[in-house]
Computed example of a mutant assay.
Amino acid sequence: MQIDILTLFPESVDAMLNVSILGRAQERGYIAIRTHQIRAYTTNKQMQVDDYPYGGGRGAVMQADPLFRCWEHVVNTYGPGRTIFMSPCGRTFTQSVARELKAQYDHLILVCGHYEGIDQRFIDACVDEELSMGDFVLTGGEIPAMAVADAVCRMVPGVLPDAECFEEESHWDGLLEYPQYSRPAVWHDRAVPEILLSGDHAKVAAWRKKESYKRTMTRRPDLFANFDESKLTTKVERKILAQAKEEFAAEQAETSTEPEE
């Protein structure tokens, strides 16, 4: 997987994506993440990349030409790729979108805007799609670009020890991940659930699945509403879901009857 990031702040992006898991994955050749300073592709002495917007208004707009020159260099040097502009106007980035990008493309070009945005003509000419992190606005596209790069690259074979490292996490199958615990067994009078200390792997797996269902029902009922129960093909799987629903209902009932302080 190759990812090229067009940005005004390559040092900030490099500081995050060249360390830890992704840094080691790059050293081992599983992925390649490159940053490109857009200012290096200006044609003026001031290395200016923005100007006032036509039609008036506050702020400035990133000009099309420096962006295009930077994008063209990437395409000519590393080959064409899926060009994505990080924008609050795009479709919302989710785990399913990350899986889609990883499965369909081996080269992503991520464009980071700033100021009031970028010239629409560059978007029309070069951008394949726009992605948003959600219904909020940031000062620039670097944080979203890093999020996309991280979410996609961690699924590349070799980046993590095995697929189980991400396939059991939140959102992979439309559910939230179960609670996690580590040593010590008792911390501040709070004990780890006994079943996790039992050594019975089947029971641990069933408990984790049940807790995943309950956590999703509690925190993200919108996700659970879209969960496809027809995927549960065994009696054991259906029993775990039934138990989760029963326990969730009991906990909700108990909460609703607790006296107010």
Results as ranks from 00 to 15, higher is better:
D50S: 08
T139L: 15
V49K: 00
P10D: 00
K239A: 15
D50M: 10
H73L: 03
T139I: 12
Y41A: 03
E247W: 10
P157V: 11
R238G: 06
L223W: 09
T35K: 01
R121E: 12
G117D: 10
F136E: 08
T43M: 14
L175E: 00
E261P: 14
P88F: 14
P10C: 06
V137R: 15
V148C: 01
D150M: 06
P80Q: 09
V97M: 13
R154W: 05
P144W: 06
V127D: 04
A15H: 08
D162C: 12
G59P: 09
D50W: 06
L110A: 08
V13E: 01
I31F: 04
F68S: 08
S198A: 11
A205E: 11
Y30E: 10
F224G: 00
V236N: 09
E169F: 03
I3K: 01
M155P: 00
E211C: 12
N226Y: 10
L101F: 02
K45A: 15
V75W: 03
T257K: 15
L8P: 05
I109N: 00
A147Q: 09
E100I: 06
A249F: 11
T234P: 04
C70F: 10
V137M: 12
L160M: 09
V61S: 07
I3F: 01
Q252W: 09
R190L: 10
A151W: 05
M86G: 00
G23D: 08
D135M: 10
L197M: 11
N18Q: 12
A250D: 13
T7L: 06
L197A: 07
V204I: 15
Y115N: 07
E167V: 13
E211F: 11
S170E: 03
L110Q: 04
R58L: 15
L160K: 00
P221Y: 15
S230W: 05
Y78W: 07
P184N: 07
E27G: 11
H114T: 11
D65C: 06
R121M: 13
H107K: 12
K102S: 10
Q104E: 14
A147R: 06
S170Y: 03
I33M: 06
Q2R: 14
E237S: 11
V19N: 08
F227V: 03
G56K: 14
G113A: 12
D65L: 14
D200R: 11
Q48W: 07
D4S: 05
T77D: 02
K214E: 00
D135S: 14
A25D: 00
M62L: 14
E211P: 02
L17C: 01
T234C: 12
T83H: 02
R39A: 07
Y213E: 02
E254K: 15
R215Q: 07
A205H: 06
R154M: 07
E11Q: 11
K102N: 11
T35L: 05
S182H: 08
Q120I: 13
A32L: 13
G117W: 10
L241G: 03
A206T: 02
G140T: 01
A25W: 03
D106C: 05
R183G: 09
Q120D: 13
V137G: 08
R99H: 04
K209I: 05
L8C: 09
D228C: 12
Q48P: 02
E142C: 07
P144R: 02
P10I: 13
L175G: 00
I31G: 05
D228M: 13
L175C: 04
E100M: 10
K210G: 02
V111F: 07
P184L: 10
L176G: 01
M1H: 00
A185P: 02
G113F: 04
I21F: 12
